[in-house]
Structure formats: structure tokens, C-alpha cells
Design a protein around this nucleic acid. Structure first.
Length: 285
DNA sequence: TGCGTTGTTTCACC
DNA sequence: CGGTGAAACAACGC
């Protein structure tokens, strides 16, 4: 479930709490999560400190002293929790299991122990995520090898004309096109539903049939939905229901709840085999 | 208990 | 080569 806003939230937490902290211990309880990693363990990080955290698409890049970088993909259910020196716990990413319960738990797979007693937990209920450790010089190449399109939000995000050109050569459903990270990078199943609702476009519309005003609305709506998500520190969807009530997300996970625009009950359907929420009145075929 | 779940890859094909 | 559509895959909770 972590999409761009959740990963960006995690990135900011790492930057805020962990930069310049030295790693005293690391325990990888589920080594298979290092799948595809050039280094088979995280031990090379011991004694090093975090120098910064970057993000490209839904990939987090944590840079360490000694010019090594840790790439993390949270996939469906990855989560990061930090217990700062002063106590308490800050959690971002997937909201399950209960962030207020005891840690580590059965889905906690990597535990980082930093100086001053700061602890960072990487948890993943579905175990679909991965971590890859590599020289920093390789990190950008590895990320580029995924062929991501421009970022969907931010200072260097995709421009309207570029987005229009990319969509013009596809006749697949607009929702499916927007989920393709090579078209643009960052949207997932939650925020794509939010953006299409905001832009009043039916998720099944062939991408190449959108007209100029619709493309302009969509471009603005994509930024809007991702920015709202970042502001809020990510979306909270538990068992296909959105929280808090009457909050954001406004559409995804809200089947049967009233549309914020017209009060029509939100519908649930499938587009490209993905659960899709929309308002059949605001977003006609 | 088999189904639902999503981000991503793979594959056959045009 | 690039787009399409469908299937597959990861593994768990309910």
C-alpha cells in the first residue's frame, strides 16, 4: 500500500531522526527480504552513520557514510517505525499491525539499533518488500534500470504537455495507464482513485480519449491528491476501509459512503483487475 | 479454506 | 520496438 506519499513520509522521518546517527547493531530476522541485494547481509553498515535519505518513485534510498546506500521498496505492506531517544514511537507506511502495540512483533523483519538507544524497525506483514545494499555509486543506476517516468508530484514533476503526450499513445483505461510507473512515477491504487475523482474522470476511460480540459484537471488533481497524502503523513486503509471518517482519502475505501461533491454513494468496481472506487454521477463513462 | 489483496514482472502477441 | 491484456507472483489474514 505504501505509495509515493507514504514513502515520502518515511523519507522525511529518516531525515529528521536518523541523519548523523551511528549504527551499533542490525538484526535481519528474515534474510529473504534482501532478495537481489549485492550484499547478502546488512553487517557492512555497522559503525557507519546515515548521511541522508532520498526517494525516487516508491523507492527509498538511505545513504550511509562510506558511500554505501540501502534501497528499500515497501510494496503492499511495508512499514517503518522509529523509537527516538526521548521515548515514543513514530510509524509510517502500512498501518497494520497496530502501530501502538508491542515491537518487535512477528512481522518485524529488520531491527536497526543506533547510538543513544534509537531503534528503527522495518516490518512487512505480506513480506513482499525488499531491501538492497550497494555502493552509493550504483544506487542511481539501479533505480534508473526500473525505467520510471517523471515524478507525479514535486518540484521536478511531470509537466502537463509531457503527461498528455504519454497518455495520447495509450488506449488502455486511464487508471491502468496512471498506475504504470513508466508513464509517471508515484501513483498507486489509492491515490489514482482520488485523483480521478477530483478530476471527475471515469477510471475506465481510454487514456487517449481525454480532451485538453480533462488533461489539465487530471494533472492538477494528481498533484493535489499526492500533496494531500503527504500533508497527512500517508493514507490509512484498513481492511478496505478508509480512515478517518469524513477524511482523506475521500473515495478509495469508501464504498457506500456519500460522495463529497454530490452525496451519491461511492461505487466499487474493478478496472484492470484492481479494486476501484468512484462516483458514478461525478465520473460518468 | 480458498479468496482477496497490490505493486510489479513476465509473457505471448500484434 | 512499444503497446496490450492477461496471468503470475510475492504470503498473509480473514
Amino acid at each position: 500500500m505504501p505509495e509515493l506519499p507514504e514513502v515520502e513520509t518515511i523519507r522525511r522521518l529518516v531525515e529528521l531522526h536518523l541523519v548523523h546517527r551511528t549504527l551499533d547493531s542490525v538484526e535481519v530476522r528474515l534474510p529473504k527480504l534482501l532478495r537481489g541485494s549485492p550484499f547478502a547481509s546488512l553487517d557492512p553498515l555497522l559503525g557507519r552513520s546515515i548521511t541522508g535519505a532520498r526517494r525516487r518513485a516508491k523507492i527509498l534510498i538511505v545513504d550511509w557514510s562510506g558511500d554505501v546506500s540501502l534501497l528499500v521498496h515497501f510494496k503492499l505492506s511495508g512499514q517503518l517505525a522509529i523509537e527516538p531517544a526521548g521515548g515514543g514511537r513514530i510509524v509510517a507506511g502500512h498501518p497494520v499491525p497496530d502501530p501502538n502495540g508491542p515491537y518487535p512483533h512477528t512481522s518485524t523483519h529488520v531491527i536497526f539499533g543506533f547510538a543513544d538507544g534509537i531503534i528503527m524497525y522495518v516490518s512487512d506483514v505480506r513480506q513482499f518488500g525488499w531491501l538492497r545494499l550497494m555502493p552509493t555509486a550504483h544506487a542511481v543506476d539501479v533505480v534508473e534500470s526500473f525505467g520510471f517516468g517523471p515524478e507525479a508530484v514535486g518540484h521536478d514533476s511531470i509537466e502537463l504537455d509531457d503527461m498528455a503526450a504519454r497518455l495520447a499513445r495509450r488506449r488502455i483505461a486511464i487508471k491502468t495507464a496512471l498506475l504504470n510507473q513508466q508513464v509517471m512515477a508515484g501513483l498507486g491504487n489509492i491515490y489514482v482513485d482520488e485523483a480521478l475523482h477530483r478530476a471527475a474522470i471515469h477510471p475506465g476511460r481510454p487514456a487517449n480519449t481525454l480532451r485538453a480540459p480533462e488533461l489539465a484537471r487530471l494533472h492538477a488533481a494528481i498533484s493535489w491528491s499526492l500533496e494531500r497524502g503527504i500533508e497527512q503523513g500517508g493514507a490509512k486503509i484498513i481492511h478496505n476501509r478508509a480512515y478517518p471518517q469524513d477524511g482523506f482519502p475521500q473515495v478509495h475505501g469508501r464504498a457506500g459512503e456519500p460522495c463529497v461533491t454530490c452525496a451519491t454513494p461511492i461505487s466499487k468496481t474493478r478496472v484492470g483487475a484492481r479494486g476501484t472506487y468512484y462516483c458514478h454521477r461525478c465520473q460518468p463513462e
